[in-house]
Design a protein around this nucleic acid. Structure first.
Length: 267
DNA sequence: AGGTCGACCTGGCAGC
DNA sequence: TGCTGCCAGGTCGACC
């Protein structure tokens, strides 16, 4: 899905629908719901949106009933305000003031549901620290690294370790840190975890400022693409020359997913 | 028990 | 043009 910066951008854009009240919900494709459509509609109708926040890569909409609408957009989900429905529109939310919000999802991996308690969704129970929380310290990162032999790339993708980092930003963070994606985390020195910790925050923060990266499907709440692509150094740049040493960027597969890196700059 | 892999879906693109 | 195979931002459960 959209990773942390993209979901954060969507959540910020959704401030526009805060305080609005759902008047109608049209389920075009119940496949994306994790409960019967009638339950979903019933739980939302006439509810006012109190607050919208992000946890990991999930969007949490707090309703006036005290329940939560949870949206995981996964790879291709979009939430777009006041747009025209198309063939990928799965849910149409209408508000009492005449405005609307569409949930579009090409691949239908996304999931929506209304719950009383976030603990009903296991994702929230196992999620690690948020990168921008005070709990996410260099000491924490170093300590969890000691307990594993996995390559650092796979480790950064593990949302039970740290929430919100996906394939694009894991690659970029490691490039900026000068650390090879293959390095077993237990072999990473304390000074290096300090740099990686710093780069996690720096890369994600910068990507949020640029409203995320749009490789293919990602769009913000207004239906616009993110602009961080132009600042990517390695992701999807196989064969292009490293901006630092001019060696070609290499692609390899780790845990079934593409990793892009510079063999000379990342040790 | 930690870690990896395939499945879940649809569609775009490269190569033949 | 049309087919095949590969690839894609995530997550979970099965399996080693």
């Amino acid at each position: 899905m959209p990773e942390l910066p993209e979901v954060e951008t969507i959540v910020r854009d959704l401030k526009l629908v805060q305080e609005k009240t759902f008047s109608a919900i049209k389920v075009q494709d119940p496949f994306v719901l994790r409960q019967p459509a009638s339950d979903f509609i019933h739980a939302l109708k006439k509810q006012r949106i109190k607050k919208i926040l992000r946890r990991g890569k999930a969007i949490v909409v707090e309703l006036s009933s005290g329940k939560f609408l949870v949206i995981q957009v996964m790879m291709t989900g979009q939430l777009v305000i006041n747009a025209h429905p198309d063939k990928h529109t799965r849910i149409i939310f209408s508000f009492s003031d005449g405005s609307s919000l569409l949930y579009n999802d090409q691949r239908r991996f996304g999931q929506l549901r209304v719950v009383k308690d976030l603990g009903e969704i296991n994702y929230f129970n196992i999620l690690g620290h948020e990168p921008f929380s005070k709990e996410f310290t260099p000491e924490y990162l170093y300590e969890v690294c000691q307990r594993s032999q996995r390559p650092i790339k796979n480790f950064l993708l593990d949302h039970t370790v740290v929430a919100g980092i996906g394939n694009i930003y894991a690659c970029e963070i490691l490039f900026r840190s000068g650390v090879s994606p293959k390095r077993p985390v237990s072999k990473i020195k304390k000074a290096e975890t300090l740099i990686i910790h710093q780069q996690i925050k720096a890369v994600l923060d910068e990507a949020i400022k640029y409203r995320g990266s749009s490789m293919r499907n990602y769009r913000d709440g207004a239906g616009q693409k993110g602009k961080f692509n132009q600042l990517l150094s390695v992701y999807a740049k196989e064969g292009e020359l490293c901006q630092q040493c001019h060696e070609p960027i290499v692609r390899m597969v780790q845990a079934g997913r593409s990793t892009f890196y510079c063999q000379r700059c990342q040790k």
